[in-house]
Amino acid sequence: MTRKVVLYALAIGFALYLVVPFYWIVNMSFMHEVDAASVPPHFLPHDPTAANYLSFVNPSTDQALVGSNAVGDTPYAVLNSLVVAFSTAVVNLVLGTFAAYSFSRIQFRGSQVLLIVYLLTRMVPGIAIIIPFYLVMRALDLLDTYGALILSYTTFALPITIWILKDYFRTVPRELEDAARVDRCGWFRMMWTVFLPISAPGLVAAAIFSFMTAWNEFMFALFMTSSISSQTIPVIAANFATDLNTQVTLMAAAGVLAVVPPLVLVLICQRLIVQGMAAGSVKG
């Protein structure tokens, strides 16, 4: 009995640890600035308002000055993040599928060493390679474009994508491929009609990982972009905190806008994500 009580208490404490910060951001986003700064704090808005969210569409004169027009730039930054994150996920899936299929189905000398080398590349700190990346993107004339961010984030996410897909592909029975070939399916048709539909949970898990990697990244986006034509939401969100004028309610509203797209995506695909991440460890 005591063990169950302790486990439930730990579970409740961990749930509060995860939920309370997000609740507090949502709570503040519906407050007036004076209520957000009050002591003791208000755990519920006394006079809820949607003005903080409406300001992203039509900012007032004072709001437009916050963080060099960070308020007005936020909708464009969210759109940029969606484009970059979605494109990164697609590129990672295409490249990762070919590589992971090869590792899962073809036995060749040095395959495990190569996989470990891929994984070790994720241990290199970003600050150590950001200058070379910047010089390469400048030489390719890709600075301040989606291409610079997509290429950078693909480099970060691809090793883990290969590992996730490799483990899941190994759980797909080879007999299904053999049966498709007996029915005169070519390799591409077999992949498209048989193998990939069965591998949907693994593909979704890898896609969500790539999406989140691109959505949350800040340092490379800060270095590689210089205008709202390609700046993502982490860069714009950092502009809200200034020495001259910081409005915490606007920051909270921007934080909610930044969290909602990936949160909705994860909630929709949570069953497939769990299946994709667990399949390799259970069956592999």
Rank of each mutant, 00 (worst) to 15 (best):
P132L: 09
I106W: 15
K283F: 10
T155E: 00
S227R: 14
Y76G: 02
M224L: 15
F188H: 09
V83M: 01
G186R: 09
P132M: 07
V235G: 06
K283G: 06
R109P: 00
M190F: 04
I268F: 15
M251F: 11
P48Y: 06
E177H: 04
P159C: 13
T242M: 08
N69F: 08
M123G: 02
T232H: 00
I130W: 09
D141Q: 08
T61V: 11
F22T: 01
V66Y: 08
P59A: 11
S81Q: 04
D141K: 13
V83K: 07
F169A: 03
D47I: 09
R174G: 12
S38T: 14
N239D: 02
F43Q: 03
V136I: 14
A37K: 15
V26N: 05
T49N: 11
Y134E: 08
A253P: 00
L115M: 15
I236R: 09
T249H: 10
F220L: 12
F56C: 00
V117M: 14
T154I: 01
A206K: 07
F108G: 04
V5R: 15
R271Y: 07
L120K: 08
V6Y: 11
A252Y: 03
Y8V: 13
T74K: 04
Q63D: 13
L93F: 05
V264C: 10
A139L: 14
